[in-house]
Write a protein that binds this DNA or RNA. Structure first.
Length: 1018
RNA sequence: GGGCGGAUGGCGAAACUGGCAGACGCGCUGGACUCAAAAUCCAGUGAUGGCAACAUCGUGAGGGUUCGACCCCCUCUCCGCCCACCA
């Protein structure tokens, strides 16, 4: 008898033992295969360990412990991502040095983490703020600088006018400063940048080589935002299209001949280059738009002045310069908030006096500046195709610009699809929609030899215009002669179908025309037509509800309602010169190729991903190790001078009034000599963002104390890549991408041994406060793990956090379930009173284990032991599989089921209890160690072998068959597993419970699923 | 607006490939032990009807496919997270 379960005593005892004996150390020289488990190292905030840290750390702890037991040399390290804003803000408030704040916080975190019993290798603890660590962060920066990946550029940054400080994107929440809540502005400032975009394609493509959750891959791909497209050069003409009127509306356009613009061009560079992914819509371009940041209207904007400087020459060309300048000023004043709050109403101003020449057809189109075009994506200019782009459509509607449809939607009539082996005829057709203004009904035809209801349909004869053709058809088919043409409903729609009456496949390019009946005048219809169909007037509702023989119906109805916008999908080209008739994808290829051949364009790949703004105007970050020399410009510090440490500071940690880092105030530190020429120089005062230290920390764990290299190459080779990295979804697009980028760079310069740092990436769900809201200090709903550990014990907390719900989904904390987890462990504790020395017969035979004293064996006891062993081995399988799939909740529940069964049967063999303790140990390591010791084992259960299920226990000679009648369960029976289908049928039909449902009738059908069920259909 | 995920008892949730819906835990009800309480143990616990055996209904709403649907398809509602004019 071992007394009560007392977690306080045993948890402290085992934590001390583990540490003393180095049970969880990874061994660089181990013969075993390595396994590298990684969690995101915590930011040591003043609030202490979050309950959510415990959930994700426990999950990886379970994996790490299982791997260790499976014979791997496991690296499961821990450290501190300690540079960052909250610490600095706390320092600003209290005047305590951030280093000291960090020390206190990490001490607290370390104590808390150790108290949960995580199997971290504490000998490898790292801290990003340790000069011995950030020496290498700075070193990596210098390597990037050498390779041209680090550069300075003027960037629009988020500026808080109240705090007078530049903010990172993540510090701006809904357009407001995270700290003071004031609205932020955009301001231009020189910043250090890292050229992550040079790695965009590899970061994108190499996702195929790693095992990340699909949603993580999708999010990264979307963030990188690769799109293949074409740049097109639109030469600028100063003249208002001398030879032709302004660009034409659909229906009345004349054929375009390429126009010679040589004499009008001033320089070779005088063109607007646009980027498009839809080169197939080039003929539909009716204007060109440049972003407010585009060089055509803006050369530079400095943060010291509101002046917009554009060359005189350019101003002179733009006739309405005053108006344009006003718009640019307006745009600049708008905050992010305004831009989105307006419901994204599009605004813009035409650049009078400028026309852009569409290189594909020589057509001159007007040029606009509008802020719906982004200055920093693509080329900062777009060709606007309102018919095929929602944004251009909205802008065109607002400013009354022409919409020219050049891509026909392409439909296949599902009711009459084209047939193989028939000839195909393509022609232009019309649908005439004739409305009777008196009742709003439409004129339709009901066909006599086919089950069709159609509008008035017909072909367009050579030389005929569509309106004429439609009026002719209406007259011929219905006799109505007085029609008023209202409008053409959008552009043509192409449909493919089989025309049964002509036995041929048709491709119809159909225009829909709306008419109104002027009066009822109706001529007699010729016999031939009258024999084919009769007329019918249908309301819109009737048309919707009736099966109309009209593949295009949805388009026509939407256009009638005026709900029609841009058609943005692919289709078939029309009114596009030599490219008409091609599919969108063919046309993109051919048009791009032609542009490229003529020197008017180029196929390119663009990314949404931007270069990484790497500067922060802060104290608590890694100093950027360069100096600015009057003679030599930007000069890198020699590597021998690393680490460049932060200076001690007297006058507070706040940034300066000009937005410079507080480092700028320390003359003795800033003023230095140039490493190259020895002349006077100033140190860079920007520091790195806190993403820097976390971009390579997984490498440092491998060799954390190395003073002469980032890590020993041999050791890196042994441990990389990380085999399993679990973290939060919120880090998918920043940290995960940044660290993949740094690792790839280090791989390229021969430092990192693998191109990808992480082999497998999974993610956890957040733990929310009760009520499903975020835990926050201000709401006072933060759960302190210390309280739970002291009230219930660390093992209970671990079990509960794994049991409470699916690991990958967010879950609200509820205190109520904790007691259940504690009870479970109490029951496990009491099992040591129920041990028997008997092993079941099967175990001894099958796995060759020694039988202990068997004098007390009785048949009954043996049966009980066997029942338990059979369930135990099923549990081993379940727990093993569930851990790999991160289904920790069902793993715990299956162990609960086992414990319930042991209690019910009243006994378990000592050997089997040992197996159970092994699978329990990753979840509740302290109690498992204590019981393992109590039943007479020496050594740690954490290093015992992970049990393998004995297959002999898993197979059963009988199966339970469910009997359904019409899909509803009515009975079940046990039957030998090898029973035939006929046996099952007979048995099922024989059931007394089933018979009443059959009511003496013969079953219509009987479905037998071997090993599972019989379903009788009556 | 787009992407991803979710909705099942009083509550957290199971149901792995379309085959017994609600495992496991909490809570609740009744009982045992106790002078009493706590703890523990035993039994019950989706809803409705019935003394009961049992029957009917039931996985956000509505349709569909299927012998059979929490699961697949279509439409919709609500919730969460991420992105948000990316041409």
């Amino acid at each position: 008898m071992q007394g009560r379960y007392d977690p306080k005593t045993i948890e402290g005892k085992w934590q001390a033992k583990w540490e003393e004996q180095g049970v969880f150390s990874a061994h660089d020289d181990s013969e075993k295969p390595k396994y590298y488990c990684l969690i995101e190292f915590p930011y040591p905030s003043g609030q202490g360990l979050h309950i959510g840290h415990i959930r994700s750390n426990t999950a990886m702890d379970i994996v790490a412990r299982k791997r260790r037991m499976e014979g791997f040399d496991v690296l499961y390290p821990i450290g501190w991502d300690a540079f960052g804003l909250p610490t600095e803000n706390y320092a600003i408030k209290t005047g305590i040095h951030p280093r000291e704040v960090t020390r206190q916080n990490t001490d607290n975190f370390r104590r808390q983490l150790k108290g949960i019993g995580f199997s971290f290798d504490w000998s490898r603890e790292i801290n990003t703020t340790d000069p011995a660590y950030f020496k290498w962060t700075q070193w990596i920066f210098l390597q990037m600088l050498k390779k041209g990946l680090a550069y300075k550029a003027k960037m629009m940054i988020n500026w808080c006018p109240s705090c007078k400080i530049g903010l990172a994107n993540e510090e701006v929440v809904d357009g407001k400063c995270e700290r003071c809540g004031n609205e932020t502005e955009k301001r231009e400032k020189e910043q250090w940048m890292l050229a992550i975009t040079k790695y965009a394609d590899r970061l994108h493509d190499d996702l195929d080589t790693v095992d990340y959750l699909e949603k993580i891959k999708i999010q990264q791909r979307n963030w990188i935002g690769r799109s293949e497209g074409t740049t097109v050069k639109f030469p600028i003409s100063n003249f208002q299209s001398p030879n032709k009127s302004e660009i034409t509306n659909p229906g009345s356009q004349s054929p375009n001949e390429p126009q010679n613009t040589d004499s009008k061009r001033q320089t070779e560079e005088d063109f607007i280059e646009v980027f498009t992914t839809r080169a197939d819509t080039l003929y539909g371009c009716t204007y060109v738009v440049v972003a407010p940041e585009h060089p055509l209207v803006r050369e530079q904007l400095t943060d010291s002045s509101e002046q917009i400087t554009v060359s005189k020459e350019q101003k002179a060309r733009i006739k309405n310069w005053e108006e344009v300048a006003a718009y640019l000023k307006e745009t600049k004043k708008k905050t992010e908030m305004d831009r989105t709050a307006e419901g994204r109403e599009k605004t813009g101003v035409r650049l009078d006096g400028l026309m852009a020449i569409n290189p594909i057809n020589g057509e001159a189109v007007p040029v606009f500046v509008a802020d719906y075009v982004l200055g920093d994506y693509g080329t900062g200019a777009v060709m606007a195709v309102p018919a095929h782009d929602e944004r251009d459509y909205a802008f065109a509607k607002k400013y009354d610009l022409p919409v020219r449809m050049v891509v026909m939607p392409h439909l296949t009539d599902k009711k009459n699809p084209p047939r193989e082996g028939k000839k195909t005829v393509e022609r232009d057709t019309i649908h005439a929609l004739v409305r009777n203004p008196k009742d709003g009904k439409f004129l339709c035809l009901e066909w006599k030899n086919h089950p069709w209801t159609t509008f008035i349909v017909g072909g367009v004869e050579n030389g005929e215009d569509v309106v004429g053709a439609a009026m002719r058809e209406v007259f011929e088919e219905t006799g109505y002669s007085n029609l008023k043409y209202i409008e053409t409903l959008g552009g043509k729609v192409q449909s493919e179908y089989f025309a049964a009456h002509k036995d041929e496949n048709r491709i119809a390019n159909t225009s829909a025309l709306l008419f109104e009946l002027e009066d009822d005048t109706r001529e007699r219809v010729v016999e031939e037509e009258a024999a084919k169909h009769s007329i019918l007037w249908l309301s819109l509702d009737e048309i919707r509800n009736r099966e109309m023989t009209c593949a295009e119906l949805d388009f026509w109805l939407a256009r009638l309602d005026g709900k029609d916008g841009a058609f943005v999908d692919d289709g078939t080209l029309t009114d596009s010169g030599e490219f008409s008739g091609l599919s969108s994808s063919q046309a993109r290829e051919k048009i791009s190729t032609k542009l490229e051949a003529d020197g008017n364009g180029k196929k390119v790949v663009k990314y949404k991903l931007r270069d990484w703004v790497f500067s922060r105007q802060r104290y608590w970050g890694e100093p950027i190790p360069v100096v600015h020399c009057e003679q030599c410009g930007i000069v890198a510090l020699p590597e021998s001078e690393l680490p460049l440490e932060l200076p001690e500071i007297d006058g507070g940690y706040s940034p300066t009034d000009t937005g410079e880092s507080p480092l700028a105030k320390i003359g003795s530190w800033v003023n230095t000599t140039c490493p190259t020429c020895g002349g006077p120089a100033k140190r860079e005062t920007d520091t790195m963002p806190n993403w820097a230290g976390s971009s390579w920390y997984f490498l440092r764990y491998i060799d954390p104390k190395n003073g002469s290299a980032l890590a020993d190459p041999e050791k890196l080779k042994r441990y990389m890549p990380v085999d399993w990295y679990n973290g939060g979804m919120e880090h998918t697009t920043l940290h995960l991408l940044y660290s993949r980028f740094w690792n790839k760079f280090l791989f390229d310069i021969g430092v990192a041994p693998t191109s990808e740092p992480y082999q497998k990436r999974t993610s956890h769900g957040l733990i929310l406060a009760e009520g499903g809201v975020k835990m926050s200090k201000s709401k006072g709903n933060v759960i302190n793990p210390d309280d739970i550990v002291s009230d219930f014990g660390a093992d209970t907390l671990r079990i509960y956090e794994m049991f409470m719900g699916p690991f990958d989904q967010p879950i609200a904390w509820g205190q109520n379930g904790l007691v259940g987890s504690r009870r479970f462990l109490e029951r496990v504790w009491k099992l040591q009173e129920k041990l028997t020395t008997h092993n079941s017969q099967l175990t001894t035979e099958e796995s060759g284990l020694t039988t202990e004293n068997s004098q007390l064996t009785t048949g009954e006891q043996e049966q009980k032991v066997k029942t338990i062993d059979s369930l135990l081995h099923k549990t081993i399988v379940k727990v093993s599989e569930d851990i790999e799939a991160m289904r920790f909740n069902t793993a715990v529940s299956s162990m609960m089921i086992l414990v319930n069964a042991i209690e019910r049967e009243g006994t378990i063999s000592k050997h089997s209890f040992g197996l159970f303790l092994r699978i329990l140990s990753p979840f509740a390591p302290h109690i498992a160690e204590e019981l393992w010791e109590n039943i007479g084992n020496t050594g740690s259960v954490s290093l015992a072998a992970w049990p393998e299920a004995d297959l002999a226990y898993l197979v059963s000679d009988t199966v339970k068959i469910v009997v359904q009648v019409n899909g509803k369960m009515r009975d079940s029976f046990e039957i030998p597993a090898d029973a035939s289908e006929d046996d099952l049928k007979t048995h099922a039909l024989d059931s007394d419970k089933v018979k009443p449902y059959l009511d003496g009738k013969e079953p219509k059908r009987i479905i037998v699923v071997p090993g599972k069920l019989v379903n009788i259909v009556v």
